[in-house]
Amino acid sequence: MKRAQLSTVLGPLIVGIAVLALWQAICRLWHIPPYLMPAPTDIAASLVANAVPLLHALRSTLLVTFAALLISVVLGVLAAFVLVQSRLIERSLMPYVIIMQVTPIVAIAPLIIILVKSTLPALIVCATLIAIFPIISNTLAGLRSVDPGLESFFRMHKASRLQMLWRLRIPSALPMFMAGLRISAGLALVGAIVAEFVAGTGGNSAGLAYEILQSGFQMDIPRMFAALSLITLAGLALYFAMALLERLALHRWHGQG
């Protein structure tokens, strides 16, 4: 591993360990009760003790997240292709896309949960509404970000609409689409958690947000932190998975072909 790569990994790792150690020391030295602020070891113990329900909740949350992300990608890309067809279509529809983006999901989630009777689809709809906007806006910007010289070259060779789309616009849009995907992946998780909070569902559909709510009601603060740490880990894993995907998709752009 190169020195720069090593420092990229080691630096944050050392800071993380130091913060956890300090947190542990403060909790132990001042005898702070776990229901006020649990020590990292209390959280770890709770994570192990409640592994089965917490992992089940994680699975439910990730199911909503991935379903929302997949639907966002399919619908978002389709919407961008429709919007890019003409400026008139874009001008007519874009305000509604923006309205959808700026309306807080917390405000409309109860309505969605009433309208969509089944819980899981309702959660997926809420998460999709949050995650779809970066896919639409970035793909649209990407489809429009074609090198004008290259576009002239295609026109000079009398390229068909399909050739322009397949050989020029789609590859040109890839970097911006990937950036949008990275943002959307994080937002899909946020959307899933927010929707779970609003729905407050238990049973088979219980996700990590429900675990946090329940732990709060029961004053089981270490379990609440354990659920929170799983959300954070899931978010980090999603971020790095998308970064890896982006790197694989764009390696040629950056001269790693």
Binding site: D147, G149, L150, S152, F153, M156, L168, P171, L174, R252, W253, G257
Partner: peptide, 15 residues
């Protein structure tokens, strides 16, 4: 007829 632009205008994703 061929045209060479001021910038190379190559496809960065292709070899």
């Amino acid at each position: 007829l061929s045209f060479v632009f001021q910038d190379p205008t190559l496809m960065p994703w292709a070899d």
